[in-house]
Design a protein around this nucleic acid. Structure first.
Lengths: 249, 249
DNA sequence: GACCGCCGTTGATCCAGATCAAGGCGCTCA
DNA sequence: TGAGCGCCTTGATCTGGATCAACGGCGGTC
């Protein structure tokens, strides 16, 4: 631990950024990029560390560079629901509104590319490419949230887990630039508890559904933090939607 | 019934529009407004009439001027979930993406202020006030959708109905420009079935919860299409969130 | 190398809400 | 005026997932 443990002094320039072509900056001109480069800063977070507090005024906002972030909302009595799962290139924060209506927590080690709120609000007002990209990303996230409403409102526990596993598998396939087929091995970056909070279930039910899908030959479970698709068709049928998208990269 | 029954030839100009100061045009300059006025057209829809089909390429998009619109998504076996309830000034449609991932249906008689897709995409690219406003409205809708995720993921049937009734009551209070207090009378513009599809419940459960809230002195039910708040504090406590917003007008 | 704490699994039981079933009420239309 | 129908309510029963409880494995630590 050093004095300012999480501030990354120089982690690279925008041109070589791994999320350059998918994040909020992807429509930005070289000229814009110089400005972004000057204004941005990186910060790292430990698993479990809070990135934005629920209802707190957040001073900064920005993109996930690496790792996984969960957005939580809670009821007073402690019931919790994950309302969003963010992967690299996803954007966190609400320009033009100081306080976030949810809590953002690092699920894995996370690196964020951040802007101070006021600086970002200036940037986005002046650089229309940024605004346009943020609008598109927000519309995609809204579509994804609405898909999730169907899952929470109407799907069974088994269907929910199948949907979740397919999201992870699609991400993995896209990342490794391979087709989504039976046999693919996929990492599960969440604990059973986080999965339960995401799916609107309890941890016990999630565990039982894992076991049940394995017993029925839909998936293999080499260990607790990964799975292998044994029967893609069945998994897709269970998930109930061909072109499901939660993570609109 | 005339030849073109739903097209409203001249229903007014933008300056006198009832949603002028809340809709997507609310940041638009007088100059912008002239352009909008020239491009827009009105169309009326009957209750039950489809405004946009699920997965269909939609040729137009625009704002709800009056009435209530529900956004539906369905699973193959017919399970349905309402993923959004839109009131006057809310915007329907997805610029830069031709097909809607949901079905929009008029719940009451509805008047829409519409633009042809290509005309709107040109407009929004040229007029940054429009784009900025659409971004804000989309961010608000995303927040509202995430509130709804908590409702569907974690709330009981009773809490769900209480949350729904409070949304209606807040709208009514704002519309009539009065404080939200016990005693307020509120119209219910939805059938029990539509409410059930919104709350992720069955029609029987919704009906039972209405009866139960009435029996417990939380609400009165003068008739099936309205209610009166008898005990606001209890209703709010049940809903579980002080500053709940689903309709971000 | 024994203890502890965390995470996940499994079993037993319970219960909120779904499902199945039967009317009731207020319309429209013949 | 009464048949038919849409909408809603109420009752009886069933069940998927929650809850309560026990335990197993595994990594860290003294």
């Amino acid at each position: 631990m050093v004095a300012v443990p999480n501030l990354v002094s120089d982690a690279g320039r925008c041109e070589t950024c791994p999320i350059r072509d998918r994040a909020i900056c992807s429509y930005s001109s070289p000229d814009d990029l110089v400005e972004l480069d000057r204004t941005k800063y990186y910060r790292d977070f430990e698993p479990g560390e809070e990135i934005v507090g629920e209802g707190e005024p957040s001073k900064s906002l920005g993109s996930v560079v690496s790792g996984v972030v969960a957005l939580h909302k809670s009821l007073e009595d402690g019931r919790r629901q994950v309302v969003g799962l963010l992967f690299p290139s996803d954007f966190i924060g609400r320009p033009f509104r100081p306080r976030a209506p949810y809590e953002a927590v690092a699920v894995t080690p996370v690196r964020m590319c951040l802007f101070h709120r006021s600086a970002f609000e200036t940037l986005i007002s002046e650089r229309t490419a940024l605004q346009r990209r943020l609008l598109e990303m927000t519309l995609d996230e809204l579509d994804a949230a609405r898909e999730w409403l169907v899952l929470l409102g109407r799907k069974t526990a088994r269907e929910r887990l199948a949907s979740f596993l397919l999201i992870l598998a699609r991400r993995e396939a896209k990342l490794r630039d391979i087709a989504l087929t039976s046999g693919i091995d996929v990492a599960i970056p969440l604990t059973r508890e986080a999965i339960a909070e995401f799916l609107g279930l309890t941890i016990e039910t999630v565990s039982r559904q894992f076991t049940s899908l394995r017993r029925d030959g839909v998936i293999d479970l080499p260990d607790k933090r990964s799975f292998r698709i044994a029967d893609l068709a069945t998994l897709q049928e269970l998930a109930g939607e061909e072109d499901f998208l939660i993570d609109p990269c």
